[in-house]
């Protein structure tokens, strides 16, 4: 099929097929190597370890090369940059696996059974939600298309709701899903649809602070805050509770926090009226100018 006389650009179909095959081959190679490593009973020596890492690196490079034909077209990777980028991605993935715990352990150890004690199911659930949250937030921050940003925001909100559940906060989790996903995100999508699309690629970032500067800012902030989070001597309680909190929240809102609660309702009313007034007045003026 790829060799038939196509009316389109001649080499494009063959290139797409080659890149697809590269993705497939890299997945097979990477998965096979990982499975072989996990289930082999032979003791791991330095040589097998180096071969394993090299095979994974090659698989990742082929995967990135193949993926480049379909996604990230604006960032064509080939030659030296491809290998450097692949090496960086490999290093990040390796460190991630190492810190996640137990993924690097079996590589150095000898049996698949070593994985099980390392990965607690609760940790895996937390990591799932954390990756979902941070991935969604990263998509929101770095996506070129504002619609994709909004959909990434959906994943960030859902991940945060999952984190709330993980923290034993059932009512805030449900409120998060109802208000953020059901309300705020729909509002944002409406605003995107009602306004003209800007943010084609040359106009994505603003002139004062472009994307690399923004990424550097994010790295500095994350590094500082995470260092503080891990180094500060927090006075944590011995056994956190997972009791349902709705009843306690209701009592707190109507006794201790009654005044802020009433203020919040007034703020919501003012916001409702204000939003209607702000959005409606301009529409009326433009319709008058049209008439």
């Amino acid at each position: 099929m790829a060799n038939g006389p196509q009316p389109g650009p001649p080499g494009a179909l063959r290139e797409a097929a080659m890149r697809g095959l590269a993705i497939l081959a890299s997945l097979l190679l990477g998965g096979g190597v990982i499975l072989a490593r996990l289930f082999s009973r032979a003791p791991a020596t330095l040589e097998t370890w180096v071969v394993f890492c090299l095979a994974l690196y090659l698989a990742l490079t082929a995967f990135l090369w193949g993926l480049n034909g379909f996604a990230f077209r604006r960032l064509p990777l080939s030659g030296i940059p491809l290998f450097l980028f692949s090496a960086a991605a490999f290093g990040v993935l390796f460190l991630l696996g190492y810190f996640v715990g137990g993924v690097a352990g079996p590589f150095l150890g000898d049996a698949a059974s070593r994985i099980i004690p390392y990965v607690h199911i609760a940790d895996a659930v937390f990591l799932l939600f954390a990756v979902m949250t941070i991935g969604g937030a990263a998509g929101t921050a770095f996506s070129r298309n504002i619609i994709y940003s909004a959909w990434s925001l959906l994943f960030a909100f859902l991940g945060v709701a999952g984190l709330y559940v993980f923290l034993g906060a059932d009512f805030p989790a449900v409120a998060q899903v109802l208000i953020y996903v059901g309300g705020v995100l729909v509002l944002i999508l409406f605003a995107i649809m009602l306004t003209k699309q800007i943010g084609e690629d040359p106009k994505l970032t603003n002139a004062h602070l472009d994307l690399p500067a923004g990424a550097a800012l994010a790295l500095i902030t994350v590094a500082t805050l995470t260092y503080m989070a891990f180094m500060a001597p927090w006075k944590t309680v011995a056994s956190p509770s997972y009791e349902p909190t709705s009843a306690g929240l209701g009592v707190a809102f109507l006794t201790e926090y009654l005044l802020p609660f009433e203020f919040a309702s007034v703020v919501l009313l003012a916001a409702l009226v204000g939003a209607v007034v702000i959005a409606r007045k301009e529409i009326k003026e433009t319709s008058e100018t049209v008439l």
Binding site: A141, S149, K203, L204, T205, N206, L209, G214
Partner: peptide, 11 residues
């Protein structure tokens, strides 16, 4: 941090 990046880089 990602929210801050979104705020400072978006137009």
């Amino acid at each position: 941090a990602l929210g801050m990046v979104t705020v400072v880089t978006r137009r």
